[in-house]
C-alpha cells in the first residue's frame, strides 16, 4: 500500500529525516515509536505532503511521487495523494464552527462532491460507529477530548481513505479518556484498515500493531513484530528507549 524509499527531509539546513525506507502492506497496522524530536511527526506529515520531502520516493495506493530538492510537487498530484490518506491529529483540529456531523460532511461535499443527503447518511453511520450518534449536533467545544478525537477519526474515515495516519492521537487526552479512542482505533485495525500510528501507548502497540518501527535521529533503527521489539530488541538504542518508558 505504501512504499517509501530513501526519504529525506530538511528544514533549512537541518536534516530531520535521514533516509527512511519503509513498506506498509494493505491492511497492516504499523506503530511508530521513538524519542521526542526524532522526526516521527515530520515523517508522518511527509506521507500526506503536509511537509514536502526534500528527496526520495513515495508510492501510496499506486500513486508514485519522486522528490527532488528545490522542485515543488505538482498541485494535482498533491491533492490526489491527500485524497488517498486521512490524518488524525494530536490536537484533533476539528472545525470549531461546525457541528460533529458537519465536520464529517464538509469534506465529502466540498472535496468529493457527494450530495448532502449522501454525506449526511455516511456521517451519521460513522458517528454511530465511533459511539457518538447522540452527539451529532454538538459543536467541538461541547465535547470532551476523547469525543473530539473520535470525531476526528470519523472525519478522516468519511473521506474513504486507503490509509489512516495518526500522530499521537491520545497524548493530549486525560488518561481516563485514552481508552475510548484506542478502542475505536483497535476496531479499525481489526476491520483491515491500513494505519500508520505514532504513539507512546506501548500496550496498545503490543496489542494491535502488526509491526513496530523504532525511529531515532531521523532513521529507522529497528523494526519488527511487537513481540520481538518489546521482548528482544536487537539494538541497544531501542532497548534504552523502551527501558526509559517502563521506568
Amino acid at each position: 500500500m505504501i512504499q517509501i524509499r530513501n526519504l529525506h527531509k530538511s528544514f533549512d539546513q537541518l536534516e530531520i529525516l535521514k533516509g527512511i525506507d519503509l513498506d506498509v502492506q494493505s491492511g497492516e497496522t504499523v506503530v511508530i515509536i521513538g524519542p521526542s524530536g526524532s522526526g516521527k511527526t515530520t515523517f508522518l506529515r511527509c506521507l500526506n505532503l503536509l511537509e514536502t520531502p526534500t528527496s526520495g520516493a513515495l508510492t501510496l495506493a499506486d500513486r508514485h511521487l519522486q522528490f527532488t530538492p528545490g522542485r515543488p510537487v505538482a498541485k494535482n498530484e498533491m491533492l490526489a495523494l491527500r485524497r488517498e490518506t486521512g490524518m488524525v491529529f494530536q490536537n484533533y483540529n476539528l472545525f470549531p464552527h461546525k457541528t460533529a456531523l458537519e465536520n464529517l460532511m464538509e469534506g465529502q461535499i466540498t472535496v468529493l462532491g457527494r450530495s448532502k443527503s449522501e454525506a449526511r447518511e455516511k456521517a451519521l453511520r460513522l458517528l454511530d460507529k465511533v459511539g457518538l450518534a447522540d452527539r451529532a449536533d454538538m459543536y467541538p467545544h461541547q465535547l470532551s477530548g476523547g469525543q473530539q478525537q473520535r470525531v476526528g477519526i470519523a472525519r478522516a474515515m468519511a473521506m474513504d481513505p486507503k490509509v489512516l495516519l495518526f500522530d499521537e492521537p491520545t497524548s493530549a487526552l486525560d488518561p481516563e479518556l485514552v481508552g475510548e479512542v484506542l478502542k475505536v482505533m483497535k476496531e479499525l485495525a481489526q476491520e483491515g484498515m491500513t494505519m500508520v500510528i505514532v504513539t507512546h501507548e506501548m500496550k496498545f502497540a503490543q496489542d494491535v500493531a502488526d509491526r513496530v518501527v523504532f525511529i531515532d535521529g531521523g532513521v529507522i533503527v529497528e523494526q519488527g513484530p511487537p513481540a520481538e521489539i518489546f521482548g528482544a530488541a536487537k539494538h541497544e538504542r531501542t532497548r534504552q528507549f523502551l527501558n526509559k518508558l517502563s521506568l
Binding site: N48, M87, F89, N93, L94, F95, V111, L112, M159
Partner: peptide, 14 residues
C-alpha cells in the same frame, strides 16, 4: 490556527 489549514488539507481541500 495553522492546524485548521492542515485539517482542511488533510481531507483533500485546495
Amino acid at each position: 490556527p495553522r492546524g485548521q489549514w492542515e485539517a482542511a488539507y488533510s481531507i483533500g481541500m485546495t
